[in-house]
Simulated assay, not measured.
Amino acid sequence: MDVGNRRELTFQASLVAADPDPLQVKRTNLLRAGNPQKADIGSDARIADNAAMAYSACTYKGEPRRYVVEPWVQKPSADVDERRKDLTRLIAAYLPAAQKAAGCTS
């Protein structure tokens, strides 16, 4: 997402294999984003200072999968607590709707 010709947010949503755990795959990136903390979103989630990741286990065309969402803040504001709340609200709202739209059922 660009605002005023500046990249403010990068967002990725992916349908991935059931294994390996996407949070383990991106563990180093989440650590670099600052203090990732567990969140009660989907099957599992982490909210960091400048990024977040959540996934839901689901079934796609009869196969077990995980639907993953990852927002990454490019130029973070000074208010880390507010940014974490915003990231939490974003992925909590987006994950179930996007998963359903992708045809990945619980």
Rank of each mutant, 00 (worst) to 15 (best):
D2S: 13
V3M: 09
V3N: 06
G4R: 04
N5E: 12
R6Q: 15
R6F: 11
R6D: 14
R7A: 15
R7N: 15
R7C: 15
R7V: 15
R7Y: 12
E8G: 12
E8M: 06
E8T: 05
L9A: 09
T10E: 15
T10A: 15
T10R: 10
T10N: 13
F11K: 10
F11G: 14
F11A: 14
Q12S: 11
A13L: 07
A13M: 05
A13K: 01
A13F: 06
A13E: 12
A13D: 11
S14P: 07
L15W: 06
L15N: 07
V16N: 09
V16Q: 06
V16H: 06
V16R: 08
A17C: 06
A17S: 13
A17I: 01
A18R: 05
A18T: 04
A18C: 01
A18S: 13
D19C: 03
D19E: 14
D19N: 08
P20D: 03
D21V: 07
D21S: 03
P22S: 03
P22R: 01
P22A: 03
L23E: 01
L23T: 01
Q24K: 10
V25K: 04
V25A: 08
K26A: 10
K26Q: 13
K26W: 09
K26M: 06
K26G: 07
K26P: 03
R27D: 12
T28I: 09
N29P: 01
L30T: 02
L30M: 09
L31S: 12
L31F: 08
L31A: 13
L31E: 15
R32Q: 10
R32W: 01
R32A: 11
R32Y: 05
R32G: 02
A33V: 00
A33G: 12
A33W: 00
G34C: 13
N35Y: 08
N35D: 14
N35T: 14
P36H: 03
P36S: 04
P36A: 05
P36R: 00
Q37M: 06
K38Q: 09
K38F: 03
A39N: 02
A39Y: 00
D40M: 07
I41R: 04
G42F: 08
G42K: 10
G42C: 11
S43L: 01
S43K: 07
S43I: 00
S43V: 02
S43G: 10
S43A: 06
D44M: 05
D44S: 14
D44E: 10
D44T: 06
A45R: 11
A45G: 10
R46C: 00
I47E: 04
A48N: 05
A48F: 06
A48S: 14
D49V: 03
D49C: 07
A51H: 00
A51W: 00
A51S: 04
A51M: 00
A52V: 00
A52C: 04
A52H: 03
A52F: 01
M53R: 03
A54V: 04
Y55F: 13
S56L: 02
A57M: 11
C58R: 14
C58M: 11
C58W: 08
T59C: 06
T59P: 02
Y60E: 09
Y60P: 12
K61H: 12
G62Q: 11
